[in-house]
Simulated scan of single mutants.
Amino acid sequence: MAGAVDLSALKNRAEASRSGTGPPASGGGDRSSGGANSWVVDVTEATFQSEVVERSMQVPVVVDLWADWCQPCKQLSPILERLAQQDGGRWVLAKIDVDANQRIPQLFGVQSLPTVIAVAGGQPVEAFAGAQPEAQIRQWLDSVLDAQRDQLPGIRAAEQAAGEQEEAEDPRFTAAEEALERGDYSTAEAAYRKILDAEPNNEQAKAALAQVQFTARAENADPSAIERADTAPDDVDAQLAASEAELAAQQVESAFDRLVRTVKRTSGDERNRVREHLIEMFELFPEGDQRVATARRNLASALF
């Protein structure tokens, strides 16, 4: 692979790390770059032993050595992160800021950035330097996985888990999602409605249907609806259209506030219509979203 680096010095240093003479702890902890279930982890000198050496006994750990001043790093790192998430645990990406953790690049004898090193069984096995095209990185990763599959049990375990998940996928949802990807909102909506006809309490289908309906409306949202609504505060239809336009423009709080104000100004069927529309908007967001929590409190105050 273009930009390959000499691994002989790396392996010698890794043997020292494996025997317990690796980088000493310096305090701090690891920071996952993608959440609790992520396969992308920020590593420090304090967590190098556990996150790189020990984890590499189960799956390959791909070490991404980067720095904020390194422009090629900013091109390479997002590719590695995306591939790590796609592979779902077949390997782990360990991101290391060399400026904050200077002993680690010294351990590997790194001469330039970015440098990427695959560690397996506690030892570096492959490496390359410099930004690379995604297709070439994919080929490099596949070669690492193929070489280590019989040595590291975590690779096959992750592949088996991914296969079981694929088999467990509901074909009804798959068909709806494929329609959505094509932009065929009517077919996707019909597919989700069919699921709900058979399973009225299917929360996944309910949430997906709401998303499809909003996405279809958002594509046709008229930005000028906001200005028109601002000049006609008592026009319920105008306020609803404006809230859709604001939500489509990622102005979430503005959309919520607009409808809460409209609830305060209306009564009877009109108030109920606005309230229901606002609640439908809430359902587009994940549980625990603070913007929704705030808007729910404001709605309750407006109603009572």
Rank of each mutant, 00 (worst) to 15 (best):
A175R: 11
Q132E: 10
V92P: 09
V252A: 05
E134R: 04
G22W: 01
L284P: 08
P223K: 09
P133I: 04
D42C: 00
S254M: 09
D64T: 05
A249R: 02
E167P: 02
A225P: 07
P114K: 04
E167G: 01
G183M: 05
A245M: 05
R103P: 02
A205L: 01
T44N: 01
P23H: 02
D99K: 10
I79K: 11
G121V: 02
E134S: 01
R172V: 01
V260L: 10
R193E: 14
R296L: 07
W140L: 04
E177Y: 11
E177R: 12
Q123R: 13
R149T: 12
F108R: 06
Q86V: 12
N12W: 02
G34Y: 08
L247D: 04
E280Y: 08
A9R: 15
Q239V: 10
R55E: 13
E45P: 07
E126R: 15
Q123S: 10
G35V: 00
G163K: 03
D68W: 06
A241N: 13
T294M: 12
G121F: 07
L180V: 00
V40I: 15
R18V: 12
V62I: 15
A94I: 03
D97T: 07
S77V: 00
V110S: 06
G3F: 07
R82A: 11
D197C: 00
I279E: 12
Q106T: 12
I137H: 03
